[in-house]
């Protein structure tokens, strides 16, 4: 435990100053967004759309973080990073956790500004036709949490795949002198094309569609008839197992196949 915390502290220390700069940048950008939202009279929702696009991008944040963090280790500090008694999954999960802390901070600030901008735009464009600001605001607040959690989980998911690609490429270095890129590409195709294909099959259906999860009924009466994608326990388990597998396979590769 002490070792994992030490590793986490190290990961955090590595990115601490960069995080502060990024937060500063976000605050400035956020304030600018707020300013433009106030002044936005002709194009309803423009700033909100931009802000929401930024929010959506966070689903790739951990993928970028892991790739960059691992590249730094491969290129500069691999001898230190790997000459330790801790197992590979511990080294990698600490890295992911460090990224997670960064994610929460940056995502949190971005969401706050997005909500603020949304409120401003909602108020700006309140018209007799556009019924109920309160309804719109409540909807956003209600589903916003689910979407935020999904984005964060999605980020962890992409982060783990990014880690798998990076470690896979490093592991193949001892076997192939060239063509590591193709190894990375092959691994990349699994969560993208491969998963898409698999999820269309009957096997997947049988495997996953059980244990339907019922989200608490929305307090907003008007929305009760809207039907979103239902959530199954099987599906949650499916992704959880994949994520755990990614961590352990990468850890195993780090311990047995990677050479530096």
């Amino acid at each position: 435990m002490k070792a994992w915390l030490t590793l986490l502290k190290k990961e955090f220390l590595l990115t601490r100053s960069s995080l502060l700069w990024k937060l500063l940048f976000l605050v400035i950008a956020g304030l600018l967004g707020v300013y433009f939202a106030y002044r936005n009279n002709d194009r309803p929702g423009l700033i909100v759309v931009l802000a929401v696009m930024v929010v959506a991008f966070y689903v790739f944040y951990l993928a970028a973080y892991m790739f960059k963090s691992l590249r730094e280790e491969w290129e500069h500090t691999s001898h230190s990073w790997l000459n330790t008694p801790q197992p590979g999954w511990m080294l990698l999960s600490a890295k992911l956790a460090g990224g997670f802390i960064n994610l929460l901070a940056l995502f949190g600030v971005t969401c706050c500004f997005t909500l603020w901008i949304t409120w401003i735009e909602l108020n700006n464009f309140a018209r007799p036709g556009f019924q109920n600001i309160d309804l719109a605001w409540a909807t956003i607040n209600y589903y916003g949490w689910y979407i935020a959690v999904l984005i964060v989980l999605g980020s962890i998911y992409t982060g783990l795949w990014s880690m798998m690609i990076s470690v896979g490429m490093a592991a193949s270095k001892s076997i192939l002198s060239k063509g590591r890129f193709f190894v990375g590409l092959a691994i990349f195709l699994i969560p993208t094309w491969g998963m898409g294909f698999f999820q269309g099959t009957v096997v997947y259906d049988r495997l996953v569609r059980w244990g339907a999860v019922y989200l608490p009924q929305t307090p907003i009466v008007e929305l009760r008839n809207l039907h979103f994608h239902s959530l199954y326990t099987g599906e949650i388990l499916f992704y959880a197992i994949i994520m755990a597998a990614l961590l352990f396979i990468s850890g195993w590769l780090l311990d047995h196949k990677v050479e530096v």
Binding site: H79, L82, P85, P87, L254, H256, V258
Partner: peptide
Amino acid sequence: ATRRIGGEVAYLS
């Protein structure tokens, strides 16, 4: 000697 022998071996790169 495995990757984790770092517990018993100090390496100065």
